[in-house]
């Protein structure tokens, strides 16, 4: 039996992402979860700088474009002033992990009651595909044309595992958008993150492995295959810190 499928009114606008970019799928999932949890009139999005900023072009909701990397701190302020409002940061890996690692880690450390959605495409997409902390060893980018030298630049960075292992956060997970099965799983992760915030459980982070066909120099279908073959072995999918009620169940 077929189900009714309709893009939520919250984001039912054309968006200017490149063809095959994963952002569009993730934004739709976030909007679906917001509608299902009846939060569409009760949200603010602190948005990062980068391709994630393009969310603002299509979404009909309160939002603030934060200084680069500072969305977690802005979200902290918003949540403390309006504790009943659902606050969702929407950032890229360059914004949340390179530029804003201090803000991202400190918000997680304090277990701020916010939801953080980070799109990890292993580069700085909007500015031309420069290397980020999540670029894989030997990955060619515009600033590592011979491949990332991990000896000189460090190893790729696994944020959800770090905060799940070190800090008292409510929920930490990583999903991807490579197949219908993975998209459906990712939606469950996002919904759990939002429910954790609505129930006052604390900080939730959902990282998404997302393709960047333009800067990876691949067509969209091949870019999805690259995630399966190269990214997932380094960035495993799953829940790294589950909500307390789920642990007890």
């Amino acid at each position: 039996m077929a189900k009714e499928r309709k893009v939520p009114a919250l984001i039912d606008n054309p968006m200017s992402f490149c063809a095959g970019c994963g952002h569009g799928i993730v934004i739709r999932l976030v909007a679906e979860c917001i509608e299902e949890l009846n939060q569409q009139d009760n949200i603010i999005f602190p948005i990062g700088v980068g391709c994630s900023s393009l969310l603002g072009g299509g979404m009909v909701a309160d939002r603030l474009h934060c200084p680069h990397g500072r969305a977690a701190s802005v979200a902290t302020g918003m949540k403390r002033v309006t504790p009943d409002t659902t606050i969702i940061t929407y950032q890229g890996d360059g914004d949340a992990y390179n530029i804003g690692i201090s803000e991202s880690l400190n918000a997680a450390y304090r277990n701020e009651n916010i939801t953080v959605i980070t799109i990890n495409n292993t580069n700085f997409g909007m500015t031309g595909g420069q290397m980020s902390w999540t670029s894989l060893p030997d990955q060619k980018t515009t600033t590592s044309p011979k491949g990332r030298d991990s000896g000189a630049t460090g190893l790729p960075f696994r944020f959800p595992e770090m905060v799940a292992g070190q800090f008292d956060v409510a929920y930490a997970a990583r999903g991807t958008v490579t197949s219908p099965k993975n998209v459906n799983k990712l939606k469950k992760y996002i919904k759990n993150g939002l429910e954790a915030q609505i129930n006052g459980e604390g900080y939730s982070i959902i990282e998404v492995l997302s393709p960047c066909p333009t800067n990876w120099g691949l067509n969209p279908v091949k870019a999805m295959e690259q995630i399966e073959e190269q990214l997932i072995p380094y960035y495993p999918l799953g829940v790294f810190k589950n909500r307390k009620e789920k642990q007890d169940a």
Binding site: E4, K6, V7, A19, I25, V183
Partner: peptide, 30 residues
Amino acid sequence: FNFACVDEEKCIRCGICYTMCPDGVYAIAI
């Protein structure tokens, strides 16, 4: 762009196109 078209005879309304589309092209209505 050469836009997508659906053969309604072959389509089983499973919604996978909706799930995978990053640009909100598809909708399934009952």
